[in-house]
Nucleic acid binder design. Structure first.
Lengths: 220, 220, 220, 220
DNA sequence: GATGAATGAGGTTTCATTCAT
DNA sequence: TATGAATGAAACCTCATTCAT
């Protein structure tokens, strides 16, 4: 209304009042997601309550609901956060150039495994939340996690196919099935961490053994 | 409970009518556990409520509490029941005589897998309850399920050791680690069932592929 | 199962446990509806809270929800209760034989009005709940109350039609419209009660005046 | 932000820019009341929330509280606004010279009714807010609305008294009571609009009938 | 003056558990 | 012994109001 016609076009409508501090929203969301990570992880999603999440994030309960529509939506974001970490971890170890022979393949598997297990060791409960608990919440989350597994297996399968084409893997290999199997081999490592028995030494031995198992299993 | 059955007839308030049929208590417990199995499995433990369990068992809510101290204890018994089924299934396929060579070993693995996958196909939700959901309830259950895995792995490890001693497996095989890995290979089959994509054909192919993978992986 | 074959056929399945005291449910519902009547009436529906209803009914909050699915459903039953009273009151004064002339008609109108105003005097807040507040809750209730008015107007219209046919009312009378108008004449009586100014004398005078007005109009 | 390009350099902290336009406050209040009218009317007072009022008024929530102490006070002003409209409407049709005979009186009643019903048709929800909902908020508002009715009835009564004095109305007419009754005759028109069944034709017929009824009664 | 982020009291509703009969 | 009525703690979520900027 009172905008002078000569005002620069950069500010079409002068913002009055306290300028909405940029990035604050994102910071708060992070703060709350982080807290929710801890609480959900400690007590499990169902047993956790928003009031404790808020307390841990040092905000009021109402604030949680300013940023997330519901407890369920908050879980979505917590999982996003965790899955992202998981994917990043795997990608970081995997996206180098493709292996040229079985030996390089084994090396790469070992590298991926090592990263993964580091993550598992660091935050077993977080992964428990993602991998174990989430699937029990509702059908949508179950689907999401199955999708995650499918993605990872597809990634693995593409490696195997490359190996088959390159000739250093058995030509008749059912790459899809074996990919699922290979991925499943991280499960015992995960269980080890959940048992709290994981030591550096055990982990390394476990990786070496299972990578050996995997590679000679698919070997020509 | 501590009423001796040999008590003298002098008691003026003698039990009238049919004596409290001994098996009745056990029957009631079974009846309730069965109902709880169905309800917990359908809705998940947290979302399930005792009232529906009672309704499904065709008893009053109070009756549930005559036989089980709490919802949590009822879950314990449900899991007992399920785990027993699981173990029985595996045992049934595994307790024949020990394999004499790699070929027999593979055959036996295939047999176990087939039984297991039949179970998975029949009741994926039940296994989801045991394997996925239960671990999220509390620490004690987590421990129990880890123990289950340990048991199964120990069983598998003993087979592998036998194989090593018999000479049809690599002498330096880390049997413990590989046992965990082998067991983990059922996971993708489980996921297949959870996806609802499991067909007879897919299952068979998956088993053959992974047993092949497993056997040649550990082969000499 | 354990039903003796000689037992009378009246009890097809022996009820065990505490026999569900017949009529208790209905008694409790009444008890809670009565309390809700008081509380809703005192504070208004939105401002009232279930906890106070429960307290006033001397039951736990949970008990309220054993008998009614929601606060809204409880309101439905409260209104049922009130509307029933209203209808009964009107019917009781109206269902005598049909009037034979304008004088009898006026007498009957006066009788209905007197009963109605007694009800209004006794429980103005209750009627306020029904007539004023309920319409503001949601569309469904609005419709219900409009329906109530329609019913009462139809009843009145049938009287008027009878009068037209009998010849003691103007032949070209728009009975439907006038019926609505006649019914609306109770509104000021209601407002009088809401003002708390209603006295026996005022009421009687008001009735006489308005019935006169209705029958003869304001004309000379 | 607040850098006015035309401010004199002399006063270090002088009011810069346009002096706080006197009418601004009043404009803001109007803007907010208008928005509140819409929102309260659409959703009802209790269900409406300040945040939506602010959004609709295109101001921040805080701004609403700069101009009104509370949601309740805002309602007060909304009602002022609505009542004013109502009174204006009635006045506009009524303030001509006083009727000289019954016929002129009927004509004037018809004119008032027609205006009123136009208002009702245009904004039934707004009137519902004023007439139905507001009375349910608290005792003070109830009193205010009863006062409104009293005012309108007094106005009507003065007309009737004039008629009595002029001799074109019955000499013994209880003008106060009849005035209330006459005013109440708009209620069915209001209900018609709330039913959503109001058509131009129905309305006109209804007015003619009821004015006839009012003037001549139902008698022959 | 204007803003919108922050808050926490309080609402409805669920359900494991108890207990009189 | 079996029952289901009763309970109340606790959960999620909303929103009027405050206040730093």
């Amino acid at each position: 209304m009172e905008s002078a016609s000569t005002s620069p076009p950069a500010t079409p409508r002068a913002r009055r009042g306290r300028p909405p501090e940029k990035g604050l929203a994102e910071r708060r969301r992070r703060q709350i997601v982080d807290a929710a990570c801890v609480i959900f992880t400690e007590r499990g999603y169902e047993a956790a309550n928003i009031s404790d999440v808020a307390k841990h994030a040092k905000v009021g309960q109402g604030t949680v609901y300013r940023y997330f529509d519901s407890k369920r939506e908050l879980l979505d974001h917590v999982l996003d956060h965790c899955v992202e970490r998981l994917i990043t971890t795997v990608r970081a170890a995997a996206t180098r150039e493709k292996p040229r022979d079985a030996e390089e393949f084994a090396t790469q598997l070992r590298a991926i495994a090592r990263r993964l297990f580091t993550l598992i060791d660091e935050e077993p409960d977080l992964l428990k939340l993602v991998l174990v608990e989430a699937a029990a919440i509702d059908a949508e989350l179950k689907a999401r996690l199955l999708g995650l597994e499918a993605t990872l297996s597809a990634l693995m399968a593409s490696y195997l196919e490359h190996g088959v084409r390159s000739g250093w893997l058995r030509p008749n290999l059912d790459t899809a099935a074996v990919a699922h199997g290979l991925n499943a081999l991280v499960v015992p490592g995960f269980l080890l961490a959940m048992r709290g028995e994981a030591t550096e030494e055990k982990r390394v031995r476990y990786i070496d053994t299972l990578v050996g198992f995997a590679v000679h299993g698919v070997g020509k």
